[in-house]
Design a protein around this nucleic acid. Structure first.
Lengths: 166, 166
DNA sequence: AAAATGGTTCTTTTTTTTGTGAACTAAAAA
DNA sequence: TTTTTAGTTCACAAAAAAAAGAACCATTTT
């Protein structure tokens, strides 16, 4: 006769204040607006707001009330896209996930890649437009110039900050 | 006996060179990457690249091979979000849709609202974090400061351009 | 008055995206 | 050796987003 198997189902849910829950949702909403799926957005929110900056798989799962696989997939996606990292501790098999906030700059700069590609396409478009649509072309050029200016300013700002660090 | 109804189905498809088609798709892809649905993205692409900057409903529909309702809904969405506008001509019932490229700046500034709301949330988060997570809090502050700086620089750049216009 | 034009609106279908649940795995603990 | 832990992976379901289709509507043209 086989042993009786009993599942203990201990919850690893972490306790959050109401204002923390609201902030998590607010930050998650910002991420969702720029196209990130809900589960990933909530994880980023939780890791930014919870008092502990490093949380385990099950803490995330139980606190956000998501399935294991949803958490697994979201975490791996966030790890690959360099938004998260994790630590391990000796004598502990769990991973402790945390925001890669130390390199916040590489992430912001990456976002800015979108602007670069816009500039690139616009330049190609300008080169291909007929000369007749004068006003249209001028506006397109002004816009592209503005974007280029913004882009270089941001790069410059970032380099200033880099120098301060060293 | 009722008349025979014959549909003429004249196509209003406009002719595009291959390089134009590629550019339309490239620009549309940029828009899709930032979360805009395909039909809307393609319309923006078409209106930026086609030799004629003002196209009718049916030209858009036939050129992009979309259904009437898809075009109708996409156009209305783009009109409401101020990405497009249209003109009419006397003795012509059609509307001629075109990019609102004259006010490219108000549109770009609107996009930047996203950065503002990020800054706002981050500031709230900083105010709510426990003092213990020192390094985390510092990084969060540095990031927020950088974003604020970028934001004000962009506003400043825009105002410089505004002055030049007047 | 009938038909055509230039769309709009509503319902349905298709496609895509997210997330679930169950089975599985590798390593560690009992 | 069996169980437990800490996840991963896969097939599927639910939900949401896009687009299609058809009916409709207000003008305008015939």
């Amino acid at each position: 006769m086989p042993h009786q198997i009993l599942k203990v189902m201990s919850s690893n849910k972490i306790i959050l204040r109401n204002d923390q829950i609201e902030l998590i949702e607010e930050l998650a909403n910002v991420h969702e607006r720029i196209g990130m799926p809900p589960a990933m957005s909530k994880i980023l929110g939780l890791l930014a707001i919870s008092d502990e900056t490093e949380l385990t798989f099950d803490q995330i799962k139980d606190t956000l009330e998501l399935s294991k696989s949803a958490v697994s997939q979201a975490l791996n996606h966030l790890l690959m896209s360099k938004r998260l990292s994790y630590k391990t501790k000796i004598g502990d098999r769990k991973r402790y996930f945390h925001l890669r906030i130390v390199d916040w700059d590489i992430h912001i700069l990456e976002q800015f890649e979108g602007v670069s590609s816009l500039i690139t396409v616009f330049k190609k478009i300008i080169a291909n437009r007929p000369a007749e649509t004068v006003e249209f072309n001028q506006n397109l050029e002004q816009m592209t110039n503005f974007l280029s200016l913004v882009h270089s300013q941001v790069i410059a700002l970032h380099q200033k900050i880099e120098k301060k660090k060293s």
